[in-house]
Design a protein around this nucleic acid. Sequence first.
DNA 1: TTTCTACTTGCAAAAAAATTGCATTTAGAT
DNA 2: ATCTAAATGCAATTTTTTTGCAAGTAGAAA
Lengths: 141, 141
Amino acid sequence: MELENLKNILRDKNLKATDQRLELFRIFHTFHQPLTIKDLALKMKSSNAHEVTLYRIVSSFKEAGLVRQVDLQDSVPYFELVDEKHDHHHIVCTLCKKVSDFVGCGSDDLIKKALSQAKDFASINSHSFELFGICKKCSKA
Amino acid sequence: MELENLKNILRDKNLKATDQRLELFRIFHTFHQPLTIKDLALKMKSSNAHEVTLYRIVSSFKEAGLVRQVDLQDSVPYFELVDEKHDHHHIVCTLCKKVSDFVGCGSDDLIKKALSQAKDFASINSHSFELFGICKKCSKA
DNA sequence: TTTCTACTTGCAAAAAAATTGCATTTAGAT
DNA sequence: ATCTAAATGCAATTTTTTTGCAAGTAGAAA
């Protein structure tokens, strides 16, 4: 992704394109997997941004809809870039914590179904769907 | 639910049927909605169990498969009783935090689909599926 | 029933995670 | 080049969760 491009994404959201924000964005983009604040702090080490700043940036990214929070039942929240299709989910190995992706949870139909059951809801904006199991490596061991 | 019944459920899991555990189980059973440790502490006030004990009981219930952790993107984990059908999910209003239920996310098919995509996974034991949106009351306001 | 033991709980303290206030710096507009 | 609102760094605090150990208790065994 081009630097100017990236800066514009931030500016579109009324976020100043600071070095830390650009780097954080790049990290999310590069690793393309759910990351904790701790993970981010380690990967940012080069520019040694204070951890407080990471909390603040992640929070502002979340608010801007650039990043979403993912729960992998690991007591700490994970974060990842929001993808346009918004239909990208995770399979987590409960033993070794390995995370794989899968797409296509068919949420459109499910959302319709859910709204027809929950008469008190007007609209759905997002959803989470994660699977927990055992990866092949752990299953052998 | 009968008291003896309840005690047996705990004993089956090798958990002693203490007063706090029985009360906590009852609270989960009565409220039938995701609760945080804080919520539990408030509702347990009568028997004023120490908060540490709640962490420990919830953790042991989770390990025993009696309770599962639910993420409602609220920065604190919620817990609820595991239901046999294991196909009970939530719709959360992101404004007022109201939670409604819905059933039937069709996880069997989705799990098959996911496993066919993630070749490195052997099996799936559980899943989470939550919807986030706006309830009718908040939508009017 | 009484005794015994492993499991639980209470309490205090510590560790870990997240938030806040304020001074300083800086992006980007003027 | 200047200015201002927004962002960061730093220190300190608050909130959440975990740990160690002594005391208490459930439930098995005598």
